[in-house]
Amino acid sequence: MAYDLSQEDPTKLAEFQAKIDAEIKIEPKDWMPEGYRQNLIRQISQHAHSEVIGMQPEGNWVSRAPSLRSKKILMAKIQDEGGHGLYLYCAAETLGVTREQYLKWLHEGKAKYASVFNYPSPTWADMGAIGWLVDGAAIVNQVSLQRTSYGPYSRAMVRICMEESFHQRQGYEIMHRMMQGNEAQRKMAQDSLDRWWWPSLMMFGPHDGESAHTSQSMQWKIKRESNDDLRQQFIDKTIPQAELIGLKIPDPNYKFNDITGHYETSDIDWDEFWNVIKGNGPCNKKRLDHHIKAHTDGAWVREAAAAYGVKQKNKLQTA
């Protein structure tokens, strides 16, 4: 059943909105409308799942990293992503839902993760493109979310942004090195940009007019800037970076508008966007199956740890 804001106590709702308007953070024990809580449960858990599922396309190359330095960086980066998942699950748990339940919703297909991770990473250059473009797009969104109205989410974002900016730089460095390398490397880097450019623009979601959650989220300051504004920031930041190292943006219509001071690009292929979100991307099944398998395979370990914990507790009580 759809959530109806009119069911909420109007006085409490007004007080709540006044706090939001005064930029006072909402904390876990504060009163909040059910719609606000539900919106955060959806958004923070989706964000947490994205960090964790995002370990997979990078994990695909960690055993084939070409140098000790690149392998160490990739291992550290994957570890960071998992760490971000942990902060975010903790932030999400403050809303009264356990991590176990969040994972169950993920496995049942009731919770989403960033659709960009349903694209494959067939080449080493994808380790560059994912860092540069996917983490680059995530940072634009996450910098904005540092000012989100829910305290635990906002604080998690501050820490995550520091690490993500390192990821974005290391991704760009991989692309830069490859563009300075031989022809095969330059071709690999360009091919990777060609494949990741549009999915990274899609990461900001539908146009503002078509986004189901934008209006209420903006009023409650869960979201601080609109999808299209954030996407434009990313485009303006990224195109000069591509040009600097000799990569071509895979869009015949892109151009800089001197009057607005922004780049203009072709429209996104929204059919592809919705198709991948609906589960029909190249890796949707693979990513989710992998997560479910790891979770299922690890059940005996979690059960053993729990049983051991109970035994230790009993020993302490009888001692």
Binding site: K71, Q79, L86, R302
Partner: peptide
């Protein structure tokens, strides 16, 4: 490093 995202829970992956 091959064990990435295969752990019984996230903390053990890390």
């Amino acid at each position: 490093c091959e064990y990435t995202s295969c752990g019984p829970f996230l903390e053990e992956d890390l």
